[in-house]
Every structure is written in C-alpha cells, then in structure tokens.
C-alpha cells in the first residue's frame, strides 16, 4: 500500500459512499416489502419521508461518483513514476489484477447511477410514486456493484508496492522484472472511422426522429449505447494518435494530461453524458403508459434525446477538429 493523500481520499470516500448506499438499500428493502400508498399507517408515512432521504443520498453519492472516476484516473497517472515501465495511468492500472476491472466497474457504475437518477427524476415528478418499486429494485441491483467497486479499489491500492531502492540491490528490479506493459492494443483505424461516423450520424438522425415523432426511443437508446462503446474504441484507435501526432501511441489516459490541454476530459464527459441521457430515453420508454406519467415522460424523453444528440455532436465535432488540425496525416 502506498500512503498517498489521494489514495487515502479515494478509499475513505468510497467506503463512505458504500455505507450510504447500504443504508439506502436497507430502506429500499423495507419500501419494496411494505409500500402501500393507500394505507395511512405510520409505517407508510415514515417510508414516504424516507424516500426523500434516499433520493438525496443517492444524488450526492452519484455526484461524488463522477468526480471520483476522474480522480482515480488522475491518481493512477501521478503514481506511474513509482513503477518500472509504467509511463502513465495505463501502466499503473496494470500493476496488479484489480486495476482494469476497477476502472470498468467504475464506468459501469457511473452509467447505472445516471440512469437511476433519471428514473428517480421521472418518478418524483408524478404525484403517486408510480415507479417506486421498480426504482428500488433497480437500486438493489446497483448496490452490489458499488460495493464491489469499493472492494476492488481497496484491493487495488493495497496490492501496490512501488519499485524503490532497498539496501540489498539497486537496479535489480528494473532488470529482472519484465516491466509493466503500457501499450493498449488498438483496433484497426479505418473500419472504426466508418463505424464512428455512422454511429454519430445514426444517433443524430434517430434523435431527431424521437424529438419530432416521439417514437423510436428504444432504437435511439440502443444506438446511443453503441455509440459510447464505439466512441471509446475510436478514442484508443485513431483519435488519440491524432492528438499525440504519433501513430503508435494509443493511450486513452495521456489525453487527460496538461500537455494536451486536458482535451480528454471533454471527450470523456461528452461520451459519458451522451450515453447516460441516450440510454435514459430507452429506459423511460416502457413507463409511458403509466397514467400519472403520460404527460411527463414524453417531454422528458425529448429533452434527454436533445441532450444526448448535443453531447454526441460535440464529441463528433471535437473529433473532426482534432483530426483536421492534427499534423498526423
């Protein structure tokens, strides 16, 4: 374990977040079990009050979740000097088994948390809590992943031991250890460029259809989800080399560094934002027929679709500008 202030901050906050989520789950189970809107019992009144608490808790938790995703990547980046062969976060995540699974779980949690907040928002707009059971069932599904994230994070940081000089040997580490591979395998650039352009175009077209005709939410949401994955793959495959102006450098983490004007944050923020809002359209779709949501959901879906299209168009435009301005041809 490395005693680094950022590691202490990350571990402590993820333990706090997990305990808050478990607290919310405890009441979630009670709500699933005893919720009855027609009843006027004191238990029901208490549960109705608790829903405010849980919504607040989870809104904060998911807000912190977003910031901590980037703090984790930044920390990994700054720790890379401590490991032989690690040049940036890519190498640091590779120092033990838990690094990459942690990153993936963190991104998935971010997306799921965003979707939960979307459902929660729709539910709170209606007068009779129509989605309350579904929302808490979703929370029960989400909670284990948040706990898993904490466990992975603790194990990841506990398993780190930096390659420093000891009294018995100097460079022995550097010579004998094979070193941490910093390169990520990249997919072929040209097919991905087509896929990226197609997914961006499809998102925009389907988004306009959703906004105008109020139909096709499910297809739009599927395309928006696919566009996220294709976007990340493209970032590794051809956008990063264009930013670095180096055809062999595919690192998805170096783009977050100061040398490249922190441009990576805009890429990740637009892609993550586009994915959450886009998938949110599809998640809300099945609830359109709920009587108390009939007026609420279609307008919410339209707003989400507009947001998603805006996010993805920004990502697409940014990519275009990056590639056109890059000296790598």
């Amino acid at each position: 374990m490395i005693l680094h202030p950022a590691i202490i901050a990350l571990v402590a906050s993820s333990v706090l977040i997990s305990s808050l989520v478990l607290y919310a789950v405890w009441y979630g189970v009670r709500i699933l079990h005893s919720w009855d809107l027609r009843s006027g019992s004191s238990l029901q009144l208490d549960l109705e009050r608790r829903t405010y608490l849980i919504s607040t808790v989870l809104a904060y938790v998911f807000g912190f979740q977003l910031v901590s995703l980037f703090l984790l990547i930044y920390t990994a980046d700054s720790l890379s000097t401590l490991f032989t062969g690690a040049m940036c976060a890519a190498g640091t995540f590779n120092v033990n088994f838990y690094g990459y699974p942690l990153l993936v779980v963190k991104i998935v949690n971010f997306l799921l948390a965003g979707l939960w907040l979307t459902v929660n928002y729709a539910d709170n707009r209606a007068y009779d809590y129509p989605l309350i059971r579904k929302k808490y069932a979703f929370l029960l599904f989400l909670a284990p992943y948040l706990v898993l994230e904490t466990v992975l994070q603790v194990r990841y940081f506990l398993g780190m031991s930096p390659d420093v000089i000891t009294s018995c040997c100097g460079s022995l580490f550097s010579v004998n250890a094979s070193g941490v591979a910093s390169d990520l395998a990249a997919l072929p650039a040209v097919p991905l460029q087509y896929a990226f352009t197609a997914s961006m175009a499809a998102t925009v077209v389907l988004g306009i259809i959703v906004v105008v005709t109020r139909r096709g939410g499910c297809a739009f949401s599927f395309v928006a989800g696919a566009a996220f994955i294709i976007g990340i793959a493209s970032l590794i495959s051809f956008i990063s080399p264009a930013i670095y102006e180096l055809p062999t450098h595919h690192c998805p983490f170096c783009v977050l560094q100061k040398e490249y004007g922190y441009i990576g944050y805009i890429f990740y923020a637009t892609l993550l934002g586009g994915a959450v809002t886009g998938i949110g359209v599809g998640v809300l779709g099945p609830f359109r027929s709920v009587p108390s949501l009939v007026d609420i959901i279609p307008s919410l879906q339209r707003r989400l679709a507009v947001l998603s299209v805006l996010f993805y168009t920004s990502a697409g435009l940014l990519t275009l500008i990056t590639i056109v301005r890059s000296n790598l041809k």
């Binding site: 202030p5 950022a6 901050a9 402590a12 980037f70």
Partner: peptide
C-alpha cells in the same frame, strides 16, 4: 488534482 483530493478529504 490537489484541489479534487482536498475536496474528497
């Protein structure tokens, strides 16, 4: 980065 760490602490 330092500001974010402080924020979390």
């Amino acid at each position: 980065y330092q500001v974010a760490t402080l924020f979390f602490l």
